[in-house]
Design a protein around this nucleic acid. Sequence first.
RNA 1: GGCGUUAUGGUGUAACUGGUUAACACGUCGCCCUCUCAAGGCGAAGAGUCCGGGUUCGAGCCCCGGUAACGCUACCA
Length: 503
Amino acid sequence: MISGPNELMTDHSTSSAAPIRVRIAPSPTGDPHVGTAYIGLLNYIYAKQRGGQFVLRIEDTDRTRFVATSEQEIFDSLHWLGLQWDEGPDVGGPYGPYRQSERTEIYREHVELLLANGTAYKAFETAEELEAVRQSQMAAKLPSRYNGAHRELTAAQIAAFEAEGRPYVVRLKVPVDGETVFRDELRGNIAFAHKQVDDQVLMKSDGFPTYHLANVVDDHLMRITDVIRAEEWISSTPKHVLLYKAFGWDLPRFWHMPLLRNADKGKISKRKNPVSLIFYRQAGFLPEAVINFLGLMGGGMPAPTEKNDTAEIFDIAGMLERFDFAKISLGGPVFDLVKLKWLNGEYLRKLTPEAFFHQLRHVLFSDDYLRQIAPLVQTRIETLGQFGDLADFFFRDDVTPAAEVFVPKKRTLEETVAFAGEQLAVLEGCDWSLEALETTLKALGTAKEWSVKENFMLLRAIVTGRTTSPPLLESLIVFGKARSLDRVRRFVDGQKKLANGRK
RNA sequence: GGCGUUAUGGUGUAACUGGUUAACACGUCGCCCUCUCAAGGCGAAGAGUCCGGGUUCGAGCCCCGGUAACGCUACCA
């Protein structure tokens, strides 16, 4: 029985008695992401339109990618955008804790339940062994999937492995035959044959759950009624459905939202687009404009139909009034920076002169920012009037240096641009501290046989637009990782475009 | 490779339950305003709705078959 999205939509809008509860579950693994804001906004709107609750949960089960400062930055960025949650690690709530790393005992108990009822099993292979299997499968052009070697271990075998003290993971025992069908509220029914569903690891050998387990357990325990998340989760939804069944729990509704895209249509990524909310804040985008723009992505709002119709300009209140989840369009929208800038300009122009001054004063020329810049220039100028001669790049958006400025004497344009690309790559993964920047950059220089001078001068030219500037590394730190990377990325992209144009 | 999702100008969206020359915004180009640049005003180009069949008096909307893009394919989320 196939039912269309519309039918699905209407059958719960009137019935569902449980109070609506939704959540976002960002991972503290780096800068707060624009995709988190997008999904966060949608969840917020959905809950508030229905008198429901919006929950923020921190998905920090991956300790290898954990970034200590990230959680606070997620809070700050979402608040900056005007999103507030009813429950979360910082505000508490009746279903806490809201940080998954503090719920490990809960997951452990739940895994025991699955082990006991036979819907999960222990597997003792090492990560290396699994990787080898995967490689050979790929080489043989077979679908890479867990081969199920430890699926039917006897009690004696398990006891033996455990006696050895061998670490193990717990896997979901996906039925061999049949299929799992679930409803996506925007698309209708989606079916996956069980042959296609892997025996997902639920509990890692370090005792932490994977997303799949933690997410299902938490959503159930936190009484989440609607899971509104990105489309990339569709393929793992059958695993989640199987888990709900294994526990004997009711399913939430699933809404998979289209993925934000780069201009080349790929899933939005930092290599091709600024994705850090910190970037948007520091670069002087107004939160109202960012929210408005996000609200435009994927439809949902009534569109303007007549000339000079201003329906495209709206705030969160407007979205609460008019946003319609049934009208979401499913094609992945391109995150078009050009249109975002236009919108931002609209908001800037609407500001009163006093409010505009306030923005300038507190965003671009904040005391905090100036205080960090001041020591970098103090010994290098003779009148205060020269400040701008040296520090202009801290306040500019476009510093594009000419080839004469950035290409070292003994290098060609091509190899220079290529090296800048290498700089970008290593900088992306680099901790934004003096020591880390210095060792990372120098290591790259050594590897590619670029002298420290060539290396640093190139980066200086890219970031400051000049060959003379305050100390490079200190400047990078003050200017910030998000904006510095954006500058390098734009430089590399721009030069590549020029090169293509010459061909 | 396997599975899944999606498909309207360059971009974001619109087109009521199939009904006249596919609409609006961004961008682009031109003109006006103007000391410049923006803003603002006016105007233009740009899609025949991924392709091929079918149903129908009539299809962007329905059906069938392709194609392409994207996503997933981890002891990441």
